[in-house]
Design a protein around this nucleic acid. Structure first.
Length: 573
RNA sequence: CGGUGAUUAGCGCAGUCAGGCAGCGCAUCUGGUUUGGGACCAGAGGGUCGCAGGUUCGAACCCUGCAUCACCGACCA
């Protein structure tokens, strides 16, 4: 490709809207342009990168025997009613109508369509297992799109769905996909970790996420320093070793006017925040009158509720919902900020760490008052202990080996065992050898193709721009001709080398613009092309061409006639 | 969904407080000088000042409503 005939679209200045480095560089390098909130055009250079990532994914998926197909973005609402997700999915699901007022959705994922395909097309158990995949646009109407394509509303995803006669077969394919994902992310040059994960809106019962380690990540992952335990913080179980102190002085009331938070109350009472109980009121199930049961969750004041774990406690709303201020005041007679378990009329859940507290302070269920020297059992006779809090840096690993460390991660892939959730709801069955209809076991496996690119840039860049891993680079080589208009020999050498490399199948961006050198160097480095060749009068006088490695910055002079072979040698590695 | 802020040339912004000819830098085009790390000089083109309404002799600027975008928060007890 000649730069003069290409749409490079690089920006010298930093775009105002970009907060993270990958977003900034994707805009500056001319990879993407925003067209609406969370919706992007992929410019030619960006599309080349996208195609590179797709190619690696296809190769590794095909190796496992998965078969590619393509499903529609626009899907009939009825299909989603069949699975029960039309109502359940919430406002993230974009709903629309056609001219005949038929209802449709923009596919945020494709379980419904694939299950509809499978139930028609897979007729015999002998066809199983079968793993079908596509690389297709998804649309999720995110609450808050951000960080460019990291959390976009429209994005590209590789999604695979496997069908099985039994669970053992599902486990086998799950492992194959786990291994394929590891191979894909390794080939793409990413520093990643597979972690145990929650199954979320997709449903199912077993799952791993593939997390790219990066500070810009929106997920928190935890891992042990002494074992291979790794999980999303949403899943990580806490282990407590502290002993509960013996009850001391009797419980008494203390005025805490104007205190609405744990920190304010702790300050007013002269206690550290881990001696103050945090009491949160959440919704349970709805009763006949349409009211929610209100349940109290008690935590140490300095610790955080884990909504995912709490949502799994039987009887609690899932996904977890907090009670409104009105509901709380109606039920307890006090406003948030003055709540506590002593005398609370409803179910009380106590986090494992909070259970080890003694002689602590908590709200008095009376505005402007707290209780001090409160003790479980003595002052709160009935409560349930469960795992409610987020693990923290240095906590014991749930497998009993080592301590936990927290890191930020970008979720680039997830593998699920779905089981029979969709096949049962939608009647995707096969005949077994006895002639009985049995719903197929299913698995599903996603990779955020567009997010992978942002994640790669987060991990691979410097102050000059992107440093692509080889497998993702939009071009293999950049040829920069210094003032070819002034020196015919430079022009001829550049043209010849360009033709030679193109003929050898090397992807070259040949900067033939006759710009000042600084402009061309800056563009090549911003775009992140791994190998940069400079042809100029100086070295050409000695019959040489300059080579620079984008990653290491190392420079080398190579004889004109050897350069094509030299580059091909670099690319083979 | 809540909070904060923004919206003026392709991009980045000033001008709004205190109403009175639409500005600056970059980019683009023309000419010239330059030429190994985002050159310099001279000139030119480019604007429904987000939209709608109101106040005013006069509105980018004041008022009202709306839209879009961004950032922060959604752990609140």
């Amino acid at each position: 490709m000649r730069t003069s005939k290409y749409l490079l679209s690089t920006l010298k200045e930093n775009p105002a809207e970009a907060a993270v480095v990958s977003h900034r560089l994707m805009l500056r390098a001319g990879l993407i342009r925003q067209i609406a909130s969370g919706i992007y055009t992929w410019l030619p250079t960006g599309l080349r990168v996208l195609h590179k990532v797709e190619a690696v994914i296809r190769e590794e998926m095909n190796k496992t025997g998965a078969i590619e197909l393509s499903m529609p973005v626009v899907q009939p609402a009825d299909l989603w009613r069949e699975s029960g997700r039309y109502e359940k999915y919430g406002p993230e699901l974009c709903r629309l109508k056609d001219r005949k007022h038929n209802e449709f959705v923009l596919g945020p994922t494709h379980e419904e369509v694939i299950t509809a395909i499978a139930r028609r097309e897979i007729k015999s158990a002998r066809q199983l297992p079968m793993n079908l995949y596509q690389i297709q646009t998804k649309f999720r109407d995110e609450i808050r799109p951000r960080f460019g394509v990291m959390r976009g509303r429209e994005f590209l995803m590789k999604d695979a769905y496997s069908f099985h006669l039994d669970h053992a077969s599902l486990e086998e394919t799950y492992q194959d996909m786990y291994d394929a994902y590891s191979a894909i992310f390794t080939r793409l040059g990413l520093d990643f970790r597979p972690v145990e994960a929650d199954t979320g809106a997709i449903g199912g019962n077993h799952s791993h996420e593939f997390q790219v380690l990066a500070d810009a990540g929106e997920d928190t992952i935890v891992f042990s320093d002494a074992s291979d335990y790794a999980a999303n913080i949403e899943m990580a179980e806490t282990i407590e070793t502290a002993e509960r102190p013996a009850p001391g002085a009797a419980c008494s009331r203390a005025a805490t006017p104007g205190c609405h938070s744990v920190d304010e109350a702790a300050k007013a009472l002269g206690l550290p925040s881990d001696q103050v109980l945090k009491s949160l009121i959440v919704r349970g199930e709805r009763n006949e009158e349409g009211r929610y049961e209100l349940i109290m969750c008690c935590l140490k004041g300095n610790q955080e509720l884990n909504e995912i774990k709490a949502g799994k406690v039987p009887g609690l709303s899932n996904p977890l919902e907090f009670a409104t201020d009105e509901e709380i005041t109606d039920f307890t007679g006090a406003a948030p900020g003055s709540l506590g378990p002593v005398g609370f009329k409803g179910r009380i859940l106590v986090d494992r760490a909070a259970d080890r507290m003694g002689n602590f302070a908590c709200g008095a269920n009376e505005n402007g008052f707290h209780l001090i020297n409160v003790n479980w059992d003595r002052d709160v006779p009935k409560y349930e202990v469960c795992d409610l809090r987020n693990v923290e840096e240095g906590d014991l690993s749930p497998d009993g080996k080592g301590r936990l460390h927290l890191r930020k991660g970008i979720e680039v892939g997830q593998v699920f065992m779905l089981g029979k959730k969709y096949s049962e709801a939608m009647g995707a069955v096969v005949m077994d050898e006895n002639g009985a209809s049995i719903p197929m076991e299913m698995g599903c496996y996603g990779i955020g193709v567009t997010r992978v690119i942002a994640a790669a840039i987060e991990q691979h860049h410097d102050d000059r721009g992107i440093i692509w891993p080889d497998a993702m680079a939009p071009f293999d080589v950049s040829i920069i001709a210094i003032k070819p208009g002034r020196c015919p020999q430079v022009h001829e050498t550049a043209e010849k080398l360009y033709a030679q490399l193109e003929a050898a199948g090397v992807e070259v961006l040949y900067d033939d613009r006759d710009e000042r050198p600084g402009v061309m160097f800056a563009d090549a480095e911003l775009i992140g092309i791994p190998h940069i060749i400079t042809i100029g009068e100086k070295s050409l006088a000695a019959g040489e061409i300059e080579y620079k490695d984008r990653r290491t910055g190392a420079k080398e002079n190579v004889k004109v006639e050897d350069m094509a072979a030299f580059i091909q040698g670099k690319l083979k590695r």
